[in-house]
Protein backbone atom coordinates (compact mmCIF):
# COMPACT_ATOMS: atom_id res chain seq x y z
CA UNK A 1 0.00 0.00 0.00
CA UNK A 2 1.16 3.49 -0.80
CA UNK A 3 1.52 5.68 2.29
CA UNK A 4 -0.31 8.99 2.05
CA UNK A 5 -2.04 11.68 4.06
CA UNK A 6 -5.77 11.82 3.95
CA UNK A 7 -8.22 14.66 4.05
CA UNK A 8 -11.97 14.74 3.81
CA UNK A 9 -13.04 18.24 2.78
CA UNK A 10 -16.53 19.38 3.72
CA UNK A 11 -17.19 21.79 0.86
CA UNK A 12 -16.58 21.68 -2.87
CA UNK A 13 -14.55 24.89 -2.60
CA UNK A 14 -12.30 23.30 0.00
CA UNK A 15 -11.85 20.20 -2.17
CA UNK A 16 -11.01 22.28 -5.22
CA UNK A 17 -8.54 24.33 -3.17
CA UNK A 18 -6.77 21.21 -1.89
CA UNK A 19 -6.58 19.57 -5.30
CA UNK A 20 -5.28 22.74 -6.88
CA UNK A 21 -2.73 23.38 -4.16
CA UNK A 22 -1.29 19.88 -4.23
CA UNK A 23 -1.44 19.39 -7.98
CA UNK A 24 -0.22 16.02 -9.14
CA UNK A 25 0.67 14.99 -5.60
CA UNK A 26 -3.01 14.82 -4.72
CA UNK A 27 -5.54 12.16 -5.71
CA UNK A 28 -9.28 12.69 -5.50
CA UNK A 29 -11.34 9.64 -4.61
CA UNK A 30 -15.11 9.18 -4.43
CA UNK A 31 -16.21 5.60 -3.74
CA UNK A 32 -12.60 4.49 -4.05
CA UNK A 33 -13.39 1.11 -5.62
CA UNK A 34 -10.98 1.64 -8.50
CA UNK A 35 -8.42 3.92 -6.92
CA UNK A 36 -7.88 2.12 -3.60
CA UNK A 37 -6.97 -0.98 -5.59
CA UNK A 38 -4.29 0.97 -7.47
CA UNK A 39 -3.04 2.53 -4.23
CA UNK A 40 -2.69 -0.92 -2.70
CA UNK A 41 -0.62 -2.10 -5.62
CA UNK A 42 1.46 1.11 -5.41
CA UNK A 43 0.50 1.89 -8.99
CA UNK A 44 -0.72 5.29 -7.78
CA UNK A 45 1.56 7.13 -5.35
CA UNK A 46 -0.08 10.37 -4.25
CA UNK A 47 1.10 12.24 -1.15
CA UNK A 48 -2.44 13.29 -0.34
CA UNK A 49 -5.75 11.55 -0.88
CA UNK A 50 -8.68 13.93 -1.03
CA UNK A 51 -11.81 11.97 -0.14
CA UNK A 52 -14.75 13.68 -1.80
CA UNK A 53 -17.17 11.34 -0.04
CA UNK A 54 -18.14 13.91 2.58
CA UNK A 55 -19.12 16.72 0.21
CA UNK A 56 -22.69 17.81 0.86
CA UNK A 57 -25.34 18.11 -1.79
CA UNK A 58 -23.73 15.84 -4.34
CA UNK A 59 -25.74 12.71 -3.62
CA UNK A 60 -29.09 11.87 -5.15
CA UNK A 61 -31.21 12.28 -8.21
CA UNK A 62 -33.59 15.16 -8.85
CA UNK A 63 -35.75 16.28 -11.73
CA UNK A 64 -34.47 19.47 -13.22
CA UNK A 65 -36.09 21.13 -16.20
CA UNK A 66 -35.99 18.74 -19.11
CA UNK A 67 -34.04 16.02 -17.40
CA UNK A 68 -32.36 14.63 -14.35
CA UNK A 69 -29.63 16.13 -12.27
CA UNK A 70 -27.57 13.32 -10.79
CA UNK A 71 -25.17 14.13 -7.99
CA UNK A 72 -21.67 12.89 -8.68
CA UNK A 73 -21.52 11.03 -5.36
CA UNK A 74 -24.68 9.03 -5.98
CA UNK A 75 -23.82 5.35 -5.64
CA UNK A 76 -24.27 3.39 -8.84
CA UNK A 77 -26.60 1.03 -7.01
CA UNK A 78 -28.85 3.96 -6.11
CA UNK A 79 -29.16 4.87 -9.80
CA UNK A 80 -30.09 1.30 -10.59
CA UNK A 81 -32.83 1.28 -7.95
CA UNK A 82 -34.09 4.85 -8.22
CA UNK A 83 -37.75 4.91 -9.27
CA UNK A 84 -37.39 8.13 -11.28
CA UNK A 85 -34.35 6.88 -13.18
CA UNK A 86 -36.04 3.58 -13.89
CA UNK A 87 -39.05 5.46 -15.21
CA UNK A 88 -37.72 8.15 -17.49
CA UNK A 89 -34.08 7.09 -17.88
CA UNK A 90 -34.43 3.35 -18.03
CA UNK A 91 -31.29 2.97 -20.16
CA UNK A 92 -29.21 4.51 -17.40
CA UNK A 93 -30.69 2.24 -14.73
CA UNK A 94 -30.09 -0.77 -16.96
CA UNK A 95 -26.45 0.16 -17.53
CA UNK A 96 -25.98 0.86 -13.82
CA UNK A 97 -27.34 -2.58 -12.97
CA UNK A 98 -24.63 -4.16 -15.11
CA UNK A 99 -21.62 -2.50 -13.49
CA UNK A 100 -19.51 -5.16 -11.73
CA UNK A 101 -21.32 -6.74 -8.75
CA UNK A 102 -23.61 -5.42 -6.05
CA UNK A 103 -20.72 -4.84 -3.60
CA UNK A 104 -18.92 -2.56 -6.00
CA UNK A 105 -22.10 -0.76 -7.04
CA UNK A 106 -22.90 0.09 -3.42
CA UNK A 107 -19.57 1.87 -2.98
CA UNK A 108 -18.73 3.14 -6.45
CA UNK A 109 -20.27 6.46 -7.47
CA UNK A 110 -21.57 7.78 -10.77
CA UNK A 111 -19.01 10.61 -10.72
CA UNK A 112 -16.16 8.29 -9.87
CA UNK A 113 -17.09 5.93 -12.66
CA UNK A 114 -17.11 8.78 -15.16
CA UNK A 115 -13.95 10.51 -13.91
CA UNK A 116 -11.89 7.33 -13.73
CA UNK A 117 -12.17 7.17 -17.52
CA UNK A 118 -11.90 3.39 -17.72
CA UNK A 119 -12.92 2.16 -21.17
CA UNK A 120 -14.38 -1.17 -19.93
CA UNK A 121 -17.30 0.01 -17.85
CA UNK A 122 -21.01 0.44 -18.37
CA UNK A 123 -22.21 3.86 -17.25
CA UNK A 124 -20.23 6.09 -19.67
CA UNK A 125 -21.70 4.57 -22.85
CA UNK A 126 -25.23 4.95 -21.46
CA UNK A 127 -24.62 8.54 -20.35
CA UNK A 128 -23.14 9.36 -23.72
CA UNK A 129 -26.06 7.74 -25.54
CA UNK A 130 -28.40 9.88 -23.42
CA UNK A 131 -26.44 12.99 -24.30
CA UNK A 132 -25.47 13.85 -20.74
CA UNK A 133 -23.48 16.88 -19.67
CA UNK A 134 -20.94 16.97 -16.85
CA UNK A 135 -20.72 19.95 -14.56
CA UNK A 136 -17.26 20.50 -13.18
CA UNK A 137 -16.38 22.93 -10.39
CA UNK A 138 -13.02 24.64 -10.32
CA UNK A 139 -11.48 27.63 -8.64
CA UNK A 140 -12.81 29.86 -11.41
CA UNK A 141 -16.36 28.57 -11.03
CA UNK A 142 -18.27 25.83 -12.79
CA UNK A 143 -18.20 24.70 -16.40
CA UNK A 144 -20.36 22.34 -18.35
CA UNK A 145 -18.79 19.73 -20.60
CA UNK A 146 -20.92 17.59 -22.90
CA UNK A 147 -19.99 13.94 -22.38
CA UNK A 148 -19.05 13.72 -26.05
CA UNK A 149 -16.10 15.98 -25.18
CA UNK A 150 -15.42 14.61 -21.73
CA UNK A 151 -13.58 11.36 -22.48
CA UNK A 152 -10.16 12.04 -23.98
CA UNK A 153 -8.47 8.66 -23.81
CA UNK A 154 -8.08 5.66 -21.54
CA UNK A 155 -8.15 6.98 -17.95
CA UNK A 156 -7.98 10.52 -19.28
CA UNK A 157 -10.87 12.99 -19.08
CA UNK A 158 -11.59 16.69 -19.48
CA UNK A 159 -11.58 17.12 -15.69
CA UNK A 160 -8.43 18.99 -14.70
CA UNK A 161 -6.47 18.11 -11.58
CA UNK A 162 -7.86 21.08 -9.61
CA UNK A 163 -11.48 20.35 -10.47
CA UNK A 164 -14.34 18.35 -9.02
CA UNK A 165 -17.18 16.81 -11.01
CA UNK A 166 -20.29 17.87 -9.13
CA UNK A 167 -23.15 16.48 -11.13
CA UNK A 168 -24.38 15.14 -14.44
CA UNK A 169 -27.39 16.45 -16.31
CA UNK A 170 -29.18 13.87 -18.37
CA UNK A 171 -31.97 15.04 -20.68
CA UNK A 172 -35.21 13.09 -20.62
CA UNK A 173 -35.64 11.26 -23.92
CA UNK A 174 -38.50 12.58 -26.04
CA UNK A 175 -41.68 10.51 -26.22
CA UNK A 176 -41.32 7.57 -28.56
CA UNK A 177 -37.80 6.82 -27.37
CA UNK A 178 -36.42 3.53 -26.12
CA UNK A 179 -33.05 2.58 -24.80
CA UNK A 180 -31.13 -0.59 -24.14
CA UNK A 181 -27.75 -1.49 -22.68
CA UNK A 182 -26.16 -4.85 -23.39
CA UNK A 183 -22.75 -6.26 -22.70
CA UNK A 184 -20.82 -9.43 -23.28
CA UNK A 185 -18.45 -10.88 -20.73
CA UNK A 186 -16.38 -14.03 -20.56
CA UNK A 187 -17.39 -16.01 -17.48
CA UNK A 188 -19.69 -14.17 -15.10
CA UNK A 189 -21.54 -10.94 -15.86
CA UNK A 190 -19.64 -9.21 -13.03
CA UNK A 191 -16.47 -9.39 -15.12
CA UNK A 192 -15.22 -6.59 -17.29
CA UNK A 193 -16.94 -6.69 -20.67
CA UNK A 194 -15.39 -7.87 -23.91
CA UNK A 195 -17.58 -5.08 -25.30
CA UNK A 196 -20.77 -3.24 -24.41
CA UNK A 197 -23.32 -1.20 -26.32
CA UNK A 198 -25.83 1.42 -25.28
CA UNK A 199 -28.48 2.39 -27.79
CA UNK A 200 -31.11 5.11 -27.56
CA UNK A 201 -33.57 5.37 -30.42
CA UNK A 202 -36.60 7.56 -31.13
CA UNK A 203 -39.32 6.19 -33.36
CA UNK A 204 -41.56 8.65 -35.20
CA UNK A 205 -45.11 7.80 -34.17
CA UNK A 206 -46.59 8.48 -37.59
CA UNK A 207 -43.95 7.21 -40.03
CA UNK A 208 -42.46 4.46 -37.78
CA UNK A 209 -39.09 5.68 -39.01
CA UNK A 210 -36.15 6.18 -36.66
CA UNK A 211 -36.15 9.89 -35.94
CA UNK A 212 -32.98 9.65 -33.89
CA UNK A 213 -30.42 6.95 -33.09
CA UNK A 214 -27.52 7.11 -30.68
CA UNK A 215 -25.53 3.89 -30.52
CA UNK A 216 -22.48 4.03 -28.25
CA UNK A 217 -19.86 1.28 -28.12
CA UNK A 218 -17.74 0.63 -25.07
CA UNK A 219 -14.50 -1.30 -24.47
CA UNK A 220 -13.61 -1.24 -28.15
CA UNK A 221 -11.59 1.97 -28.12
CA UNK A 222 -9.85 4.26 -25.68
CA UNK A 223 -13.14 6.02 -24.94
CA UNK A 224 -16.81 5.17 -25.36
CA UNK A 225 -17.54 5.81 -29.04
CA UNK A 226 -20.64 6.99 -30.83
CA UNK A 227 -21.14 4.69 -33.82
CA UNK A 228 -21.65 7.58 -36.25
CA UNK A 229 -21.86 5.54 -39.44
CA UNK A 230 -24.27 3.07 -37.92
CA UNK A 231 -26.38 5.91 -36.52
CA UNK A 232 -26.45 7.63 -39.93
CA UNK A 233 -27.41 4.37 -41.62
CA UNK A 234 -30.49 4.12 -39.45
CA UNK A 235 -31.63 7.73 -39.07
CA UNK A 236 -34.75 8.55 -41.04
CA UNK A 237 -35.24 4.91 -42.03
CA UNK A 238 -37.84 2.40 -41.00
CA UNK A 239 -36.01 -0.37 -39.20
CA UNK A 240 -35.85 -3.78 -40.84
CA UNK A 241 -33.77 -6.87 -40.11
CA UNK A 242 -31.57 -6.09 -43.08
CA UNK A 243 -31.06 -2.47 -42.05
CA UNK A 244 -30.24 -3.43 -38.48
CA UNK A 245 -27.75 -6.00 -39.71
CA UNK A 246 -26.19 -3.42 -42.02
CA UNK A 247 -25.88 -0.89 -39.19
CA UNK A 248 -24.34 -3.53 -36.95
CA UNK A 249 -21.70 -4.31 -39.56
CA UNK A 250 -20.94 -0.60 -39.95
CA UNK A 251 -20.60 -0.25 -36.18
CA UNK A 252 -18.24 -3.19 -35.99
CA UNK A 253 -16.09 -1.57 -38.69
CA UNK A 254 -16.08 1.74 -36.83
CA UNK A 255 -15.04 0.13 -33.58
CA UNK A 256 -11.36 0.43 -32.77
CA UNK A 257 -10.62 -2.50 -30.46
CA UNK A 258 -7.20 -3.70 -29.40
CA UNK A 259 -6.31 -7.31 -28.70
CA UNK A 260 -6.13 -8.14 -25.01
CA UNK A 261 -6.98 -10.96 -22.61
CA UNK A 262 -10.66 -10.52 -23.37
CA UNK A 263 -10.33 -11.16 -27.08
CA UNK A 264 -8.75 -10.50 -30.45
CA UNK A 265 -9.64 -7.58 -32.70
CA UNK A 266 -11.58 -9.99 -34.93
CA UNK A 267 -13.61 -11.35 -32.05
CA UNK A 268 -14.37 -7.97 -30.51
CA UNK A 269 -15.70 -6.72 -33.84
CA UNK A 270 -17.90 -9.80 -34.06
CA UNK A 271 -19.22 -9.17 -30.58
CA UNK A 272 -19.90 -5.52 -31.33
CA UNK A 273 -21.96 -6.60 -34.32
CA UNK A 274 -24.01 -8.99 -32.17
CA UNK A 275 -24.43 -6.45 -29.37
CA UNK A 276 -25.48 -3.62 -31.69
CA UNK A 277 -28.13 -5.87 -33.21
CA UNK A 278 -29.37 -6.96 -29.80
CA UNK A 279 -29.40 -3.41 -28.39
CA UNK A 280 -31.17 -1.99 -31.42
CA UNK A 281 -33.88 -4.63 -31.50
CA UNK A 282 -34.51 -4.19 -27.81
CA UNK A 283 -34.44 -0.37 -27.92
CA UNK A 284 -36.81 -0.22 -30.89
CA UNK A 285 -39.21 -2.60 -29.19
CA UNK A 286 -39.14 -0.45 -26.08
CA UNK A 287 -39.67 2.71 -28.13
CA UNK A 288 -42.80 1.18 -29.56
Amino acid sequence: MTRFDYVRPSTVAEAVGLLEAHGDDALAIAGGTATVLLLQKRMLRPELVVDLGGLPGLTGVEQNGGGLRIGALTPIRAIERDAIVRGTHHLLAEAASQVAGVRVRNAATVGGSVCFGEPQTDLPPALLAMNATATIAGSQGSRDVPLEEFFLGPYETAREQGEVLTHLSVPTPVPGSGGCHVKFTMGSPENKPVANVSALVTVDASTRALADVRIVMGAVGGVPMLAHKANDTLKGERPSDALIAQAAVRASEEADPVEDLRGSVWYKRRIIKVLVERALRCAIERAN
Binding site: M186, G187, S188, P189, E190, N191, K192, L261
Partner: peptide, 10 residues
Protein backbone atom coordinates in the same frame (compact mmCIF):
# COMPACT_ATOMS: atom_id res chain seq x y z
CA UNK B 1 -10.08 -9.19 -13.15
CA UNK B 2 -8.13 -10.90 -15.92
CA UNK B 3 -8.58 -14.44 -14.67
CA UNK B 4 -12.29 -15.19 -14.22
CA UNK B 5 -13.38 -18.01 -11.91
CA UNK B 6 -16.61 -20.00 -11.83
CA UNK B 7 -19.39 -18.27 -9.89
CA UNK B 8 -23.03 -18.96 -9.08
CA UNK B 9 -23.76 -17.91 -12.67
CA UNK B 10 -21.58 -20.77 -13.95
Amino acid sequence: MDYPLPTLHT
